[in-house]
Simulated assay, not measured.
Amino acid sequence: MQRLNVFFILILVSVMGFAQQPIPRDTSFTVRGTFVKEKKHRPYIEIARPEMSEEVAFLKDQVYKKREERELTVDVYYPKKKIKGNYPGVILIHGGGWRSGDKSQTGSMAIALANSGYVAVCVEYRLSLEAKYPEAVYDIKSAIRWMRANSKMLNLDTKKISTLGMSAGGQLATLVGFTNFNKEYEDTVGNPEQSSAIQAVVNIDGTLSFHHRESKEGTATSSWLNCTYEENPKIWESASPLDQVSKHSPPIVFINSSIPRYHAGRDDMIQQLNSFHVYSEVHTLADTPHPFWFFHPWFTPTVNHAVAFLDKIFKN
């Protein structure tokens, strides 16, 4: 009997230890590490650290989705002053090849947007070491539903929400927007009674197609999609925003570096959008590295382009 009890205790300890295993993390993509790398080629750059206005409130690590294994959170920057009609919202999606990065990397952009009169929400989503496509899309749409469910607290106009993403986040921002009302791209975890639809997209150097003459996607894409193109082309197409363009697509602005591979499919997308009379803009920043949005002298022009577009869509 004693041996049996010891056996069951060992099993219990083993199960508890397994349940408490840390979430796998890839910390290779950081703002500091990227700065050190890019400064070797452009010694004049500086990390952008805008000051948050006293009129802006900050909420950290708000739980938007509870899963059995853990909770997912957002950081929120929003104007304190209440106004009639409330403020438009932006959900910010970090880059990192769908494998690395975290929501803190969109904090500077969120502060700048909140200073300009937007409810800015930095979202944590599950990366490829933890969950494969389309779980990240599910997470982001869940966060948008959370925004609507908490609109009174955030002074948010629920009819005016945009995605904004950088690099891999730009691909996600566009895919989320171009799959409005498509239930195949969302789960029902977290505020299922709310809509996940968005009304505008800000794509900052995010690819639009994974299998395209301009695209150079490889290991990172295959890891996230959990297959190569040859193994399952339909998955690659379903994750490509270019394949989701329709007359229901929201207006979009492309803010791009001078490196063509990071906006693969953009010109084809614009041609399709034009055929549906969907508004789009393109702004290319000359002589820029891919992660230009982190640094001066490009941070302010990036913010200005984004705010001007969002003001045109939501405030004019």
Results as ranks from 00 to 15, higher is better:
residue 239 A to T: 11
residue 148 R to Y: 06
residue 275 S to R: 15
residue 227 C to W: 06
residue 236 W to M: 04
residue 188 T to M: 05
residue 306 A to I: 08
residue 56 V to A: 00
residue 184 E to L: 14
residue 13 V to R: 04
residue 9 I to V: 15
residue 123 V to T: 13
residue 274 N to E: 14
residue 289 P to Y: 09
residue 217 E to V: 08
residue 291 P to D: 01
residue 286 A to T: 11
residue 214 E to G: 11
residue 56 V to R: 00
residue 138 Y to D: 06
residue 96 G to V: 09
residue 5 N to H: 14
residue 192 P to C: 04
residue 43 P to M: 11
residue 24 P to K: 03
residue 196 S to F: 12
residue 244 Q to C: 10
residue 65 K to E: 08
residue 255 I to N: 01
residue 207 T to E: 04
residue 265 G to L: 08
residue 58 F to T: 02
residue 232 N to Q: 11
residue 181 F to G: 12
residue 179 T to N: 02
residue 209 S to T: 10
residue 302 T to E: 01
residue 31 V to A: 04
residue 270 I to F: 07
residue 299 F to K: 01
residue 267 D to F: 13
residue 1 M to Y: 14
residue 86 N to I: 00
residue 44 Y to L: 08
residue 307 V to Q: 00
residue 219 T to K: 12
residue 107 G to S: 12
residue 183 K to G: 01
residue 314 F to Q: 02
residue 49 R to P: 02
residue 84 K to G: 05
residue 177 G to Y: 02
residue 209 S to H: 14
residue 228 T to R: 03
residue 206 G to A: 03
residue 195 S to T: 15
residue 234 K to G: 00
residue 106 T to M: 15
residue 149 A to I: 07
residue 27 T to V: 13
residue 164 L to D: 00
residue 106 T to E: 04
residue 197 A to S: 13
residue 283 H to G: 02
residue 53 S to L: 08
residue 258 S to W: 05
residue 265 G to S: 10
